[in-house]
Computed example of a mutant assay.
Amino acid sequence: MKLERLLNGAKNLVRTGWMQNGIPPAIGETVASHSFEASILAYILSCEIRKKGIDINPEHSAIIALFHDAGETLLGDLPKWTTEKINKRDTEIKAFEELGVGKELFLELKEMRTNEAKVAKLADRLSTYLQAIRYKKLGFNVNEIIKTYDEEISKLLDIEPLNYIKDLVVNIMNSLKENNEDNK
């Protein structure tokens, strides 16, 4: 396992999409901070789904979210332009194989074959959306990212068991928006 590469890469790699939208690297969200937030969200959202009587393991959801972008520590955070032109999934699988950890978690997420993977996917999208709202508060034009992720989250919330927490997710999204508007 390439532990040092995994840890250093995640902590130091600023997510490309933010820089392409004018966010200076000094305040850019890293892969590690994004994965951490997605992991926390996955755990909390899974706990809420479990309260509804759905069979789900919050710890497993959190672990999937924690590792979902680990391949980027070798690949870099590829810009959307690039990912539209290559077989990103196969390339990411090769990166996970090279790292020696997380491949099964990555595949579970990509195939969304479990409730835990569905929640991890939602948490990934929600984390990006929330970060975009934070950057908007700072005056950056990230409206396209907000719109794109709002639409993706809406689609995910129509899938079982995510539909059981739709109100909670919408409240989280609206709460941050309202807090940002109050602080202007």
Rank of each mutant, 00 (worst) to 15 (best):
K177E: 11
A26F: 02
K137A: 12
E111H: 11
L7R: 12
A120V: 02
K11I: 08
I145G: 04
I40G: 03
W18F: 15
L74Y: 04
M112N: 10
I44V: 14
D90W: 00
T82Q: 12
V101Q: 04
K103T: 08
E92Y: 12
N57L: 01
E29K: 12
K94I: 08
V31D: 01
A65G: 03
L3F: 08
L45R: 06
T73Q: 03
M112S: 13
I27L: 08
E97M: 13
E48A: 09
K85D: 11
K177M: 06
L99P: 05
E108M: 05
Y43F: 14
K52H: 07
L45Y: 08
E4H: 12
R125C: 03
L74E: 11
I44T: 13
V142E: 10
F140G: 05
I23T: 07
A132I: 08
K94A: 14
P161N: 12
N174T: 06
G17C: 07
I23N: 06
I40T: 11
L157S: 05
Y164C: 15
K137R: 15
R134G: 06
I86H: 02
R89M: 04
P25Q: 07
D77Q: 07
A70T: 01
T16K: 15
W81D: 14
F96L: 11
T73A: 13
R50D: 00
L74C: 04
E152V: 07
P161Q: 10
T91Y: 04
K137I: 03
L3P: 02
Y164R: 15
Q131I: 09
E92T: 11
K94N: 15
V14P: 00
E181G: 00
E72D: 10
T91W: 01
I40V: 15
V101L: 14
L13M: 14
I165L: 07
I63V: 13
E181V: 09
F96P: 09
F36S: 13
K184W: 03
E144M: 12
L176C: 00
E59R: 13
D124Y: 03
V170F: 07
W81R: 14
C47L: 13
E48C: 09
G139R: 10
Y164T: 15
L99D: 02
E98P: 00
A62V: 01
E59H: 08
A95D: 03
I64V: 12
F140E: 06
L6C: 03
L99F: 06
F67D: 00
E111W: 03
D124K: 02
F106N: 04
A95Y: 00
I54F: 07
A10R: 10
H34V: 07
N12F: 03
V169N: 01
D55H: 06
S46Y: 06
A38E: 03
L105F: 11
I86M: 06
K103G: 01
L105E: 13
E29C: 11
I153T: 08
T30N: 09
Q20H: 09
K166V: 06
K136H: 09
K121E: 08
F67P: 02
G28Q: 06
I153V: 09
K52F: 00
K11L: 13
L13K: 11
A62C: 08
I56Q: 01
G9Y: 05
I133C: 05
I49H: 04
I27G: 02
K121V: 08
A32W: 13
L105G: 02
A65Y: 01
K94T: 11
V14C: 05
I44M: 06
L122A: 04
